[in-house]
Amino acid sequence: MDEVEMESKANSVIKWNKNAKLIISDVDETIADLYVPAEPAMVEELSALLQEGKSLFFVTGQSIKSLQWRIVYQIPKELRKGILLGHCSGAEVWGHDNEGNLKDQPFYSVYETAMTQEQKDKWRDIIKQLVSEFQLEVYDTMPVDEFKMKTGDNPRAVMLEDRGPQITFEVVNGYDLTPEQTAQLETEIPESNGAYDLRIPIVERAQQLLDEAELPVTPRIAGVFAVDLAVKGVSKTTSVRHVLGDEKVLSSIGLTKNDVENPQHIEVWGDKFSTVRGGTDRHISEALPKSVRSVDFREENPEEFEPGYNIVVWQGKKHLHQGLLEYLKARHHS
C-alpha cells in the first residue's frame, strides 16, 4: 500500500500527493465561495501548481463565464493552457490555446446536440411556470450574504441563473425549514433528514412538467441549497470520463493516457460527497478508479460516502475553500 493510501486509510493529517499530475476539482466552496472570485492567495497557489507542470480540471455546476471571472482570468495567460473547464455539471468541456485564450469550440457539448431550439424554449417556459406556481421571488445571482441582507429569511426568495445547458435555482432560505415556516408556505413539503426542504416539491413538480413536455432535462437537488435542471444524462461523471478517455483532450493539457492510468497521478478536491445529502462531487470519484484519493473539505460524515472509494475528510483547522488553501500552503513545508 502506497504512502498516500496508507495515510488516507489511517484518517491522519492528509499529506500532499507529490505524484499528482491531474487535479480534478469542484469550484463552489472548494476553490471559492459562492458568486465571488477566488481569493488572491488561492489564485497564487493554483498558479504555482500550473507553473510546476500540473494540470487542473475544474468541474462545476456553474457557467463558463462564472469560471472565467472568478478563477481563470486571475491566472496568468501563459499558464492557462493547463486548465480544462467542465461547466454546467459536465454538459461541455472547454480548453485553452497556447496563448491562454479559451478555444473557439468545446471539446464536446451535450447541450447543442441533445436539444432543438423549440425544446430549449419550452424548457424556459417550464421555469417560468415553476416560478409562478411556487410564488417564488426571483433575484439575480449575488454573494449569499448580500442576498440574505436583501431577502431576510424569506423562503420563497431564490436566485435564478440560466447557464444555457443548465438552469439553477438557489433556494438559499428554503432548504432547512422549521415546521412553522413550512405551514406558512401552504405547500406540502415532506420531512427530509430532520428538516423540511422546499427544493423537494420544486424538483418533483419540475420532473412532472418536463416529462409531460418530453424534454431531455433532469431536475435534481445539488449543492447545499441548489436545484439544478440539466440536460439528461449529464453529470460530473460524464465530463471526467470523456476527458480521461480522449487523447486529444489530455494532450491539450500536456498529459497522455499513460499519465492518468496510474491512480497516484490523479487527485480530486470537493466538498459534497455525501450520498445522503445530494453530494455531486462524488460523481467525480465515481468516474475514477476507487483508489484515487478524493479530499473532502467539508466536515461530512464518512459513513455517508460511497463504499469502497478513497474519500477522506480534511482534518485541518479550516474547511471548505479555506481548508483547501490551508492544505495547499502546508505542502510547501512537507
Rank of each mutant, 00 (worst) to 15 (best):
A10E: 14
N11L: 13
I14Y: 04
W16A: 09
N17L: 04
A20V: 15
D26K: 04
V27A: 07
V27L: 15
D28A: 09
I31K: 11
A32F: 04
A38K: 05
V43A: 04
E44L: 13
E52G: 02
F57W: 04
G61A: 05
I64Q: 14
R70I: 00
R80K: 14
K81M: 08
G82F: 02
G82D: 02
H87L: 02
E92A: 11
N98V: 13
D104G: 13
D104T: 12
D104W: 03
P106W: 11
F107V: 08
S109R: 03
T116W: 10
D125G: 00
E133P: 02
D162C: 11
I167F: 14
V172S: 09
N173S: 05
E186C: 06
L198K: 03
R199E: 03
V203W: 03
R205L: 13
L210Q: 08
D211M: 04
E212H: 12
V224M: 10
L229C: 12
A230E: 11
V231H: 09
S235N: 15
K236C: 03
S239F: 00
V243I: 13
D246K: 04
E247M: 02
V249N: 04
N258K: 14
E261P: 00
I266L: 15
V268W: 06
W269Q: 00
D271W: 05
T275P: 00
D281P: 08
I284A: 02
S285G: 10
L288D: 08
S291K: 14
S291V: 14
R293H: 05
S294A: 15
F297L: 12
E300C: 09
E306D: 02
I311R: 09
W314A: 08
W314C: 06
L324P: 05
E326G: 12
Y327C: 10
